[in-house]
């Protein structure tokens, strides 16, 4: 495992082990395709998932590619940062055809444009006209109170409705 970490540090990337079989690499945006295809060539053939974290204070999205190598039982977490206003990212479909589905989901929940992905149509949500829901500035309680017409307050229950008598 340390052989991989040293190799990646040799390529000028910042890599550190998380556990004895998992390490993470943070990669600038342009070198993601290069690092992913390099890892795929050295045994990380299984693409596990693509996650996206919305760092709203730093104004950035963080894309997390997770790969797994079955030969030497390792887990590689490749992270990259992309700017938050009109975020675009090149699609990794050429390396793994599987990314098409994960990128379509991240596009719908965060609004990231994946250049090269043939099919970014709506996936889970039907006629959604608001900002992508998993962004930090989307308030789900205000949305559901508006849409489903019920009133709820945020203080987790410390309030005194007047009309209750015990049964």
């Amino acid at each position: 495992m340390l052989k991989h970490v040293e190799k990646l540090r040799g390529m000028g990337l910042e890599a550190n082990p998380l556990k004895d079989w998992e390490f993470e690499v943070s990669v600038p945006k342009e070198r993601v395709a290069e690092v992913l295809s390099y890892l795929k060539s050295t045994g990380f053939k299984a693409f596990i998932h693509l996650a996206c974290v919305d760092w709203i204070d730093e104004g950035e999205f963080e894309l997390v590619y997770n790969l797994e190598s079955y030969e030497d039982a390792l887990q590689a977490v490749v992270k990259t940062r992309i700017p938050r206003n009109n975020p675009t990212m090149e699609s990794m479909i050429s390396i793994w055809g599987l990314c098409q589905v994960y990128e379509r989901e991240v596009h719908e929940f965060f609004g990231i444009e994946f250049v090269g992905n043939p099919n970014l149509k709506p996936f889970f949500l039907e006629n959604w006209m608001d900002i992508p829901p998993l962004r930090k500035d989307f308030n789900t309680l205000v949305y559901s109170e508006e849409l489903f017409e019920f009133k709820e307050d945020e203080t987790h229950g410390i309030k005194a409705p007047k009309r209750i008598e015990h049964k």
């Binding site: 596990i48 998932h49 996650a51 974290v53 997390v64 997770n66 599987l98 589905v101």
Partner: peptide, 23 residues
């Protein structure tokens, strides 16, 4: 799998759930 991101708060910052039958 669970990809958990925490920023030291009492609430998780981001949790991603990797379901096995997704792909």
């Amino acid at each position: 799998g669970y990809y958990i991101v925490s920023d030291g708060d009492v609430k998780p910052y981001r949790v991603y759930v990797r379901g096995p039958s997704y792909s």
